[in-house]
Design a protein around this nucleic acid. Structure first.
Lengths: 361, 361
DNA sequence: TTGAAAGCGATACCAG
DNA sequence: CTGGTATCGCTTTCAA
């Protein structure tokens, strides 16, 4: 761990003001944040006029010389409008709140979140990720509600709950979405039904003639919301075929844990395994190979997420490719709900799953 | 790509109000967001009293019956204070703004950010990640400044620039930090000097007797801020030894690109390679092995980030372990600067790099 | 112990 | 075309 000294370790002179007193502002103005009143004073007009000019209000026509004076004054002072004051006055904001999930949940989901964020900002929303770390559903909702967002998109790992949804709506949120494997009463849902992932993997293994299926379930806390539905999906698929069995295999993301699991592997009598995702699949395959168990002859292995990783392994890893909707279409959906908030909660099934068959199965 | 229908596809009846008009509030109150005035009215007291009670103001003593009435009223209305109004009145907020980097930059950095976020929230800061997608330095700074954060922690991939820093400070930000491989004039810096990563890798390869060093440079845009300094670091280290050479090897994160690179590999005459990070290292090693080039005999390979991945590869991958300071110590640092904003810009070198020697080198 | 009122910064109405 | 002014929700003196 790199240490940070308590005292200033490496004072670097500010390059633009080598010998001036600390914190002096180049402009030499009184040391406080400029407001629209300051701009008005400097430009010799009223605050109202400043507002008209800076917002390009079309209902009112301001003479060109005045506009220039206002713009010049604003620039000279380095004026930046105060978002809080503005939205207080306006009675609403265009802030979309996306609480960050407390645990990292994989590159696929992160990328999805990023794309959604970008798409929303194209709709002129201000996207804010808020870390409500360590708060439970309703408390968290209250914390979010203080910001008066127009919409909330909650990865529902932290169960938001019907109560939380109610809190947000009462605080003026026009749209509350959960996005993830679960939904909350009263909220719209972008439902990513992880059971489909398990079902696709299991169907594939069954089609390959495998009958005794193992399912890796990560021991890391916070992943249950994903791993349990995936397991359920496998169970559902397997139930459609006679004489099949499903074994739950807990595994931590360490080599030790994998070695332990593989140690008694042959006695499990499995012929196929769904490994939760590609990373756990790699961990497992490595342990299996070190034990002299061959893939896919002794055991078929299927991962999920279809990372580059899967293609690089030998044998190449079969993997469930997960498809999520484009950020753009979701942003449109959110925008529609914000503009017509009346409707009932909609549930959108937004997860597609299909197996990419490679050499490991 | 999963499609989202334009029209409501699966209207689900709100479970708590099967046949009521849409959007009706259970409490039956007029449909608007409750304010402290509403609470005051319902409790039969003044707004001032409400404020005293809900904020536990110690300077004023309120009778117990009154307190209870206020609390009851607030609960009944589902009152949530309005953060913007509050901080407008207070003249300051405890919001720490962390602009999200536009491109995903690896699990290591993400985890670092998460930990920092958590640590800051323990200091009672409200951490907000803001996606200012597609704005350049000064424009972005203005957008951030509108939120009037008390501190800004900017991953400096988007060069904030001295101008941007000035904008933020003038808008009232007490602390402006850049965190990443570069720094900006006027801002404090948590400098993560990526050259150290390259230097460590190169020193290791040299110690192993390797003399003709290749350096993988990702072609993916947005990674230059990391890859170039790592390359520079290698160059610096190599310069200390006679008769050594460094070759820059562009590589996109695809199998095709790796195959192309490896195709003419032998003619490069390299005996050691630093692969930018573990993922590119895996991609490269796979391509090398498919070509019949053995690691480490023909070529020594070193990755970076020391992911689990590295331990699972065969041969096990030597990797540069990167150490970052704890979120807690950084949060303390930020808090100190916020409380004593006068000082000159400090530069903290917060990146440690050391090679974990395994089988690939 | 409680209430009345000023004011944070920006906007929009209504006069002038 | 431009200026006063009320207002958004909340905190905090100052009086009662």
């Amino acid at each position: 761990m790199v240490q940070i000294p308590k005292q200033q370790p490496a004072p670097v002179p500010a390059p633009d003001a080598p010998n001036s007193p600390p914190d002096s502002v180049p402009q030499g103005t009184p040391h406080s944040v400029p407001t629209s009143a300051d701009v008005a004073r400097l430009a010799g007009v009223s605050r109202a006029t400043v507002s008209y000019v800076l917002n390009n209000t079309s209902a009112v026509r301001i003479s060109e010389p005045t506009r220039r004076r206002v713009h010049a004054a604003a620039k000279e002072l380095g004026y930046v409008p105060h978002a809080a004051a503005r939205s207080l006055r306006a009675g609403h904001s265009r802030m979309v709140l996306m609480p960050t999930p407390q645990i990292a949940v994989g590159p696929l989901f992160s990328e999805f979140i990023n794309e959604l964020q970008w798409a929303l900002s194209r709709f002129d929303y201000t996207v804010v990720q808020y870390g409500s770390l360590g708060l439970t559903g309703e408390e968290a909702a209250r914390a979010w509600a203080e910001l008066r967002p127009v919409a909330v998109l909650a990865p529902d790992a932290i169960a938001l709950g019907a109560r939380g949804v109610a809190v947000l709506k009462r605080s003026g949120a026009k749209a509350v979405f959960t996005l993830g494997p679960q939904r909350a009463d009263g909220a719209h849902a972008l439902l990513m039904d992880q059971r489909l992932v398990g079902r696709a993997a299991a169907a594939h293994l069954l089609a390959q003639g495998r009958r005794r299926i193992g399912v890796i379930v990560p021991e890391e806390p916070g992943l249950e919301a994903f791993s349990q539905p995936r397991l359920d999906g496998v169970r559902t698929a397997v139930r459609t075929v006679e004489g099949c069995s499903v074994a739950e295999l807990p595994l931590a993301y360490t080599e030790d844990s994998a070695a332990r699991l593989v140690d008694g592997w042959r006695s499990l009598g499995l012929d196929g395994v769904f490994a939760y995702n590609d990373e756990y699949a790699m961990l497992l395959m490595r342990a299996l190979q070190d034990e002299g168990i061959t893939v896919p002859d002794d055991i078929a292995v299927v991962g999920a997420d279809d990372l580059m990783l899967a293609r690089l392994l030998r044998p190449r890893l079969s993997s469930v490719r997960i498809e999520l909707p484009s950020g753009r279409s979701l942003a449109e959906l959110v925008d529609r709900v914000v503009r017509e908030p009346g409707g009932r909660a909609e549930v959108h099934d937004v997860l597609g799953a299909s197996v990419v068959h490679r050499e490991s199965s």
